[in-house]
Each structure stands twice: as C-alpha cells, then as structure tokens.
Nucleic acid binder design. Structure first.
Lengths: 339, 339
DNA sequence: GGCTGTTGGATTAACGTTAATCTTATATTT
DNA sequence: AAATATAAGATTAACGTTAATCCAACAGCC
C-alpha cells in the first residue's frame, strides 16, 4: 500500500491535518513536530496524491494541449515552447492529436475538461458547422489558439503575421520581375492558408497586378504534394520561374522535382518555403523561407494562458508575433543574407 | 457552477447514486428513469469529473510519457505512435521533456506518480549514479523504456535492433572495400550509442579487421556536429571515403560540408544516416539510412504497457523491433533500392 | 397467507486531501 | 489574579464520485 497522510499520521501519532500542514509548509506547526513528520514521510516514501488534492483545490495545475499533428516538426517546436514555459511555472500537460479532424478536436476537449484542466491551448482546424464556435463559446476554462484562429474568436489567438509573411514573399518575387509564380498554398480548412492567400493578393494588388488562378493550388501540405504539383506543372508546360510554398515540407518536394527535371535553383527557378524548419538550411540548395518563431509561439501562448487562468475576467486580445523572410540559396536576389 | 451528479439528482428527484448508475450504464435502472436523467444531464451540460471518479477507482486511465527531446523528429514519431494507441484504448497522456537530463527525468516521474498515472513510457538517459536504477526498481506502476534501455532493467525495453542495424551499415561499407570510414557516433550517455558501436565492431571483427580509433567520434547528434566533424576531418587531410552517421540529422550536416568542399556523394564519399526521418529522402542526394520503425516503436510500447497495467504480475521481456538498411542515392553499391 | 425472488431504487461509507473551526495549554497584560 | 492573547494541534466537513449494502413493493409459488 502506498503511504498517505493517514499512514504518516498513525505512524507519528499526530493528526492527519497536522501532517498535511507540515508537508505543505502551512506554518503553525512547531519545528520539532515538523521534523518528526517529515522524516517519517521520507521513510515511508510518501508521494502526495495530486488527484485527491485537486478535489478540494479548484486548480489542478494541468493544461490540455490539442495539437493538429504531433509528428509535424512545426508543431513539435510549438509544443516544446509550451512545455518549457509550463515546466517553469509548474504546470503539467495533457496532450492529444487531432489529425486536423474537428470531431476529434471536440472529443479531446471534452476529455480534457473531464480531467479538469485549468486551461487549454489548441491548434484548431476549421469546423464545417457552427458547432465548433458554440463549443468554444461555452468553454468553462480559459483557452488560447496557437498559430491559428477561428472566425468569431480571433481574440483568443497568438498568431505569427501570416499576411505580412506571405506578402513579403510575393513582394520579393514580384520585385524580381517574375510574371509566373507557382503558388502552392495550404489546405483550405486552416486559417493560415486564408491569411497567406490574402498576403499574396495584397502584394499583387499593391502593384496593380492580378495573379493567374491557374498558378494557385491548395494542397494538404506534404512533401509529395510539392513534388507532384511541380511535376505536373512541368508536364503541362506551364512557364513558371518561381515557386512559393505553403511550408518547407512542400518545398522539399518541390526542390526534389526540380532537381530531377534538371532545373537549376535559383538560376532557373527561385523557391521559397515557409516556417524555417531546422532542416531547411541543410537542403541543397539551402532553402529561403519565412522564419516563424515556433518555439516562442508556444512559449507566449502558455504565458498568455497563465494570465487568463490567474485572472479569468481578463479580456482576450490577439497577439501577433513577427515573421520574417529569410534569404538563403534557393533565391538569387539576396537582400538580407542569413544563415 | 458546473453541473454534478448532485445537481442532476436534485433536479430530477432521484438519488445521486441512481444518477451515477444511469450515466455509467450500470444497469438495474428502469428505461423511464434513465431517460429522464439522461435528458436532464444533457440539458445541464453535465461533464463527468474524472478526478473525482478516480478517487474511488484505482485506475486513472492516464499514462505519463517522459520524452528525451520533444522537438526531435525521431521522438515526435514515437510519441505519435504512443498517442495513436492510447487514443484507441482510451488512455490520456501526460507528457514531459527531459532534454537528456537525468534529474529532470526523475522529477518528471515523481510528478507523474503524484498525478497517479497507471503507467509510464520513458526514453531514459543514462544516469551517472545508481540512483536512477533504484528509482526505477521502486516504481509502483508498470513502465516501459522506448527505444533505449538501462543496464539492469533491459527487460523493460522495446528496442529497434541497434546492433544489427549498425552492423549492416558497416557490413555494407566494408564489403564495398572502404578502408577509412569516418564514424560519427552518438552521445555516450544513451544506450543506442553503445549498441551501435558494438554493431560496428562486430562488422569489423567478422572480417578480422580493427577500426581506426582516430576515425571514430562521439558527438551530441546535431547537424552542426556532422558539419564540423567533416570540415575538420578534411582540414586534417584525413583520407576517408565513407561516413557513417549516428542519425540523419548529423548526416544532413555531413552532406552540407561535403557539398561545400566539392566532394561528390556517393562518387567520392558514401554517406549513411540512421533513423530514416521523413526529410531524408528529400536530401540532395537522397540519404541512405537505417529505417527504424519509429511510429511502431511507440505503438508497441503502449500496447505492451497496457498488458502490464492490466496484469501487473506479468513478467517483463525485452522486445526488439527490426531495423533495416535502406539504400538511396548517398551510397553507390545499391543492393536493395527503395524510395 | 407466509415464503422466496425480483425489480428499482435509496442510504451509507468510503477515496485522500484541505479549509474552517474548535480546543487546550501556556504566556502576556493589566 | 482575572482577562486576554497566542501557539500548537485536533476535529469536522467537504470536494464528486462509486461500491456495498439496504429497503420497499410487488409477483409468483405451493
């Protein structure tokens, strides 16, 4: 049998309450008694029962993290940021994976609530119906969306300047004089796609240009998507001289296809990714991309969540972290060269 | 106020116990009563309190996962495997990161025990002292080591044939006639390094050869390590014609250095990684590597843990998943060509 | 008509902790 | 010396559930 406060109380002759106070440093107990109790607790290998404790305490010091895709390096970094901050402030993390499935998302949130988390950090997918909005509107605990938003609840998000980021990509590409830019955008069900498409449009519009819809593709975001999209574009003899990708993972596939088709990057084709994943600088050629503060995104989301947990009446306000175009060897007109 | 069984009991006029039985489908309650209670529960938005429930139930259906490095794609895949299985069988995951720090490892385990997890999956680091062994020996819940082992507790591990894997790498390289193979091994504090070094030795010994210690390096396992190691080997005019890397991440750095030094892969130098990370097939040239069943490793670890949780007296037995050398374009003597 | 069984539900006692209140002995004040 | 304060600890009730036990009403049976 595992030792409890009762075990220690019986072994030392003090009351359960006294033992509890000693082990929580609640004061009002003499040095002598404290020592006896502490020694006995050590001896019995007492481990406090956080479950029982949170029966009385309203706080469990646990948060729930709902990730869209645990194996995606982007989210891994975000989660590490969350974890780092959580560790610093003594929070534990329950974690779950939705695979971008809104139903699974809802299910996970219910499970976490049942486990009485003090708050939630969520990377939401776009639900098709209004149920999602209702779910979030009725949540009894504070919640933050990391890296994405949901229409109607934008204030709960920590974002990373997707509009500006993609705009800077197209500002660059258009300023280089490219007239046919292949734009491999993301899945329609996430807010980032929305915003980046908007950033792209703004770059065109600021030059009074209109993008050719035939050069815009919405893809799930895997390497094969980039690979196949470029292959088929080449097969269709589309005349593009630059590729802007939804993320670095798609860009990997793009680089592979271009290499196999003997197109030189950046000489024949300029390629830009998004996210700045760790491996991007090791691609051949190294990948120009938009640097997104992934780790910081998680860290800040957790910080913000803590504030709301400490003060539930605090108003929500969208936070927008900066993103920045990073030039490496897959682009030719280097303005700011970075490793 | 959140609805509880009591709220529902008062609203319907039945006893708390009756409500509890209905919502748990415990039987012995009439259809009619069940309906009334269920309807009221829905109406009040009742969410069961898993914390309170696990006060009486010995099981919390929660496991703790102690990861060495959340942002490493290898572990991300393992964790996704764990998560997938956990989801299927209704377990929740508490997760924490050690950064390969044995103290943090111990601390996390204590926290998880305090939260009354039913079991643990751990990617352990080598502790310097005997404390680690004692800690694990005294753990009150079942635990599985995923992908690594601790001396004295090997039976708790699910492994992936590190010895055989590295042996196959060197079998191949030696059969190709390389007489100077640069071996960039891993950190000394993890079991994988140990085993792979052993596999390497066996390959040499089976040919009555002895590896040149000057060509063996133990590195932390980051891209820079591979990059710098090759750079300095070249600067020292070491005459190697092949590089075996501890993981694909190191191999990335190696490929970069070789490219910058105008050494052609695989023509001048053959390079082999380890782990088969997603991006490895997109390197230029695509990376030959040892395919480790990462996702399956996590999945199997969880399956195994479940068995031990269901039957605590079951004996532990090391499981060893197969690993397999995968030939891509960074090697020249292709025997089994795979994508 | 007394016995047994069954159905549908209520009552009670836990689980391990914590917060509020209560008690006793001693110390301090006037 | 009586009144008051303080220190150190005990008692009690509660958190939301669940399991074991209990009870009443009714049916069926010889």
């Amino acid at each position: 049998m595992r030792a409890t406060l009762k075990t220690i109380a019986e072994a030392t002759g003090f009351s359960i309450n006294t033992v509890s106070r000693v082990l929580r440093n609640d004061g009002r107990i003499s040095q002598e008694t404290s020592q006896i109790i502490r020694r006995k607790a050590d001896e019995l290998g007492y481990i406090p029962d956080a479950i029982a404790s949170s029966m009385r305490n309203p706080r469990t010091r646990t948060i729930g993290v709902v990730s869209a895709d645990l194996s995606n390096p982007f989210f891994s970094e975000v989660i590490r940021g969350i974890e780092e901050r959580a560790q610093e402030t003594g929070y534990q993390m329950l974690i779950g994976n939705t695979e971008e499935d809104a139903e699974r998302e809802e299910h996970l949130i219910r499970l976490f609530l049942s486990r009485k988390v003090d708050g939630l950090i969520i990377m939401p997918s776009y639900g098709k119906d209004r149920r999602q909005l209702e779910l979030y509107a009725s949540l009894p605990v504070p919640f933050i969306f990391a890296g994405r938003y949901i229409e109607g609840l934008e204030s709960h998000s920590v974002l990373h300047s997707d509009i500006e980021g993609e705009q800077s990509v197209f500002d660059y590409l258009l300023s280089r004089g490219h007239s046919h830019i292949l734009y491999l955008s993301g899945p329609e069900c996430i807010s980032n796609t929305h915003d980046r498409d908007k950033g792209m449009m703004e770059a065109y519009e600021s030059r009074s240009l209109i993008p050719d819809q035939k050069y815009i593709f919405h893809l799930p975001g895997h390497p094969e998507d980039g690979y196949q999209a470029v292959n088929s574009a080449i097969n269709l003899s589309m005349e593009f001289t630059a590729v802007a990708c939804f993320n670095d993972i798609v860009a990997m596939g793009v680089l592979k296809s271009l290499a196999e088709n003997d197109l030189s990057v950046p000489h024949d084709i300029e390629v830009i990714g998004y996210d700045n994943l760790m491996f991007s600088q090791f691609m051949q050629p190294s990948l120009s991309t938009v640097d997104v503060p992934k780790h910081r995104l998680g860290y800040v989301a957790m910080e913000l969540l803590e504030k709301h947990m400490d003060n539930p009446s605090m108003e929500y306000k969208t936070e927008n972290l900066p993103a920045r175009l990073l030039f490496r060897d897959s682009t030719a007109g280097e303005r700011i060269r970075q490793s």
